[in-house]
Design a protein around this nucleic acid. Structure first.
Lengths: 198, 198, 198, 198
DNA sequence: TATGAATGAGCATTCATTCAT
DNA sequence: GATGAATGAATGCTCATTCAT
C-alpha cells in the first residue's frame, strides 16, 4: 500500500535531502559524511539507507532534480516573456539571477560537484547543463542575426555571462544590504550592456 | 658540505607541489589522498612528510603562494600601464584573465577550496583575497568619480566582473579553439562594456 | 523491541574490556595496539569503535571502574570489621592484599599506566588514588593517637606499606606455591609488625 | 686513532643516555620516540645511530649498566659493614633505599620496562636481578638460622621488602619535605621491624 | 660525526555500507 | 522505517631505521 504524502517516511526523506543540500554546500560532497547527515536529521546512519541508495545516488538525485527544475522554470519564464528578442533575453537573465539567489545551495552544488559524480551520472547532468546553456546561446545567435547584439564569440560570451550571473550564489545572503530585485536589475544590466549594440 | 641548489630534496618538494596542484584541481582537496600524491611524485607516502608538514599545510602553502604571486603580478601590471584610469582598469582586467588562463589550477583551488582551510589559515587567505578585490573596487570608484564609468553598486559590480573573468579557469584548455590573446580581448571588452559610459 | 540483556553487543563490550586488561597488563598501554585487541576479541579493528570511543577512553574507563570498585570494596571491608583500630587496620591491609592478588591486572595498570592518561583523565584518577591512600593515613593517625602504633612519618609510612603490599601483583600467579590466605597473612603481619608498638 | 674521553662524540653519547633516562622514566620506553630524544640532545634523529645500535640496544645498555652498578655498589656496602648479620642486613637495606632515591630513573626503568626487552636481553637482565635478590635472601636465611629474625617465607618476604623500599623511587623528589637520611632511616626501620625477633 | 631524504611497516581512526532484528 | 553491530577498505600520519653525502 502506498504511503500517503507527508507520512513519516516522506518527511524523513525530505529532511535528508534538505540537510544534505546544506552540508554539501558548506563542506563539499567529499568532505561531507553520512554520520553528520544522519545526526542533522536525527536518525542513525544506517537508517539513511531506508531513504537513499548510496551517497553517490543522493548527490545525483539532488543535482538532477535541480537541473530539471531549472530547465522547466526557465522555459516557463521564456514563455511568459514578450515576443521580442530582448524581452526574452532579459527574461532569461533575470530568471537566472533570481533562481541562483533563491536556490544558491543547489546551484553551487550542481556547478562545483560535477567531478564527484560517477561517469554515467556525470554524463547525464552535463547533458542537462548543455541543454540549459544552449538556450542562452540560441538567444545570442538570434540577437546577432537580428543585428541587436554585438557578440565576439557566442560560446565564450555565453559562458562568461553565465559565470558572472552564477557568481552571485557564492556570496549572496538573504540578509544582505540589497534587495533581490535590485540585484537582479544590476546583474541583468551588467550582462546586457556587455553585448548590446551601442 | 652544503647541498647544491636543485638537489634531490628541492626537486622533490617542487614535484610534490606540482602534483598536488593537479590532483586538488581535478579531484578536490578532500577527495585527494596522499597515497596518490606520493605515487604521482614517485616516492612513498611517508616520504611526503620530509617536505610537507601536513595535508592542510600543503593546501595553505599552495594558496598563499598563489595569492602572493597574484597580488604582486597585478601590482606590476598596474605599474606598467599608462596613467589613465581606463588604461589601468583595462590592464587589471587583462592581467586577471591572462593569469586565470595560465595558472587556472592555482586559481580554481584558491577559489573553491577556501572552505577546506583551517580557521586561522582561512582568515589569512581571505584577507589576501580582499586585498585583491579592493584593487578593482578602487579603480571602479575612481572611474565613477571621474565620470568615465556608470556603476550601479561598486562591490556587487566588482564581484560580478571578477566572477565573469574568473569563470574562464573552469573551462579554458590551452588546446582550445581560440588564442589566449583573443580570449583576453573578448573578456576585457565584455567586462568594460558592462560599465563604460555609453 | 528492546534488545535482551547479554545480547551480542554487551558481550562484545565486555570481551573488549577483558582482552584489553590482559594486553595492557602484559605489554603496556603504549605498546598495545588495537589490531591485536580486536583479533583477541574476534572482531575487526573498526568494530571496536562500536564499543569504545578511543584507545585513551578505553584506558580511562578501565582505570576508573577499577578505582571505584577498590574504593567501594575497601569501604565494605572496613564496615564489616570489628570496631577496634587494629581490627580495622588489619581489615584494610588484608583486603588490599587480597584485592591485589585477585585483580592484579587492573591494579598493575592503574599503578603503572597513569602517565598514559590525558591530563584531565589523569587528574580524575589521581584524585581517586588519593582518596584511597587517605583511608590508610587516617587509620595510621588514629593508631598513633591511641598509642597503639609507632609511626615515624605518616605519609611516608603509608606509601611504603602500600608499595610493599601492592608489589604482590607484579609476581603473584594463582598457580604459585602458596595459598592466597597464606600470602594475605604473611603480608599483613609484615606490614603490621613494622609499625606496631613493640 | 682512539678518541680521547670527553671528546665531542663521547659527550654526545653521554647526553643521549642521560636524555633517554629522563624520557623513558617519564613516558615509558614504548611511548618514547627517537625524534624527541634527538631533539632533547640537539641533534637529528639519524645522528643518534652514530652512538646507539638501536632503540632496543639503548634500553638494554641503560639497564645493564644500572644493574651492574647496583650489584657492585651493594657488594661494596656489604663489605664496608660490620661483621654482624644485623649490621650487614641494615647496610643492604640502607644502601638499597639510598640508591633508589639517588638513581630513581634508572631503577624505575629497570623495574618496569623489563617487558620491553627482547627475549635474550630480558634473560640477561632478569639474571642480574635474581643475583641481587639472592643477596637479600641469603641474609634473611642467615638471620633465621641465627635466630635473630622471624621470617614466614623467605622469598615472599624478600620480595615484599624490596617492593616496599623500591616504592620510594615512584614518588621521591629531591626537593621534598624530608632529608635523604631521614627517609633511609624510616624505611630501614620499617623493613627491619617487620621481621626482627620481637 | 652529522645530516637530509627516503623507506616500509604500522598506527589509531574514519567511512560508506550491510544486515539481522 | 529504524537501529546496533559489524565490516573492509581507506586515510592522514608516525616511527625506527638506512644510507649517500
Amino acid at each position: 500500500m502506498a504511503r500517503i504524502t507527508g507520512s513519516n517516511g516522506a518527511r524523513t526523506a525530505a529532511a535528508i535531502r534538505q540537510a544534505a543540500l546544506g552540508l554539501i554546500y558548506r563542506q563539499g560532497f567529499a568532505a561531507m559524511n553520512l554520520r553528520d547527515l544522519a545526526a542533522e536529521v536525527g536518525i542513525q546512519p544506517s537508517s539513511l539507507y531506508n531513504h537513499i541508495t548510496s551517497k553517490q545516488a543522493l548527490l545525483f538525485d539532488l543535482m538532477q532534480e535541480h537541473m530539471q527544475t531549472l530547465l522547466d522554470s526557465t522555459d516557463a519564464a521564456l514563455a511568459a516573456a514578450g515576443p521580442g528578442l530582448m524581452e526574452r533575453l532579459r527574461a532569461f537573465l533575470a530568471h537566472h539571477v533570481l533562481y541562483h539567489m533563491e536556490r544558491r545551495q543547489e546551484v553551487y552544488i550542481a556547478n562545483f560537484e560535477l567531478r564527484a559524480l560517477d561517469p554515467p551520472n556525470h554524463r547525464q547532468i552535463v547533458a542537462m547543463r548543455q541543454d540549459y546553456e544552449a538556450r542562452l546561446m540560441a538567444l545570442l545567435e538570434e540577437g546577432v542575426a537580428l543585428g541587436e547584439l554585438v557578440v565576439g564569440d557566442i560560446p565564450v560570451t555565453a559562458y562568461a555571462m553565465l559565470a558572472m550571473l552564477t557568481g552571485i550564489c557564492t556570496w549572496y545572503r538573504p540578509s544582505g544590504r540589497l534587495e533581490k530585485a535590485e540585484l537582479v536589475a544590476l546583474h541583468t544590466e551588467l550582462a546586457l550592456n556587455g553585448i548590446r549594440r551601442r
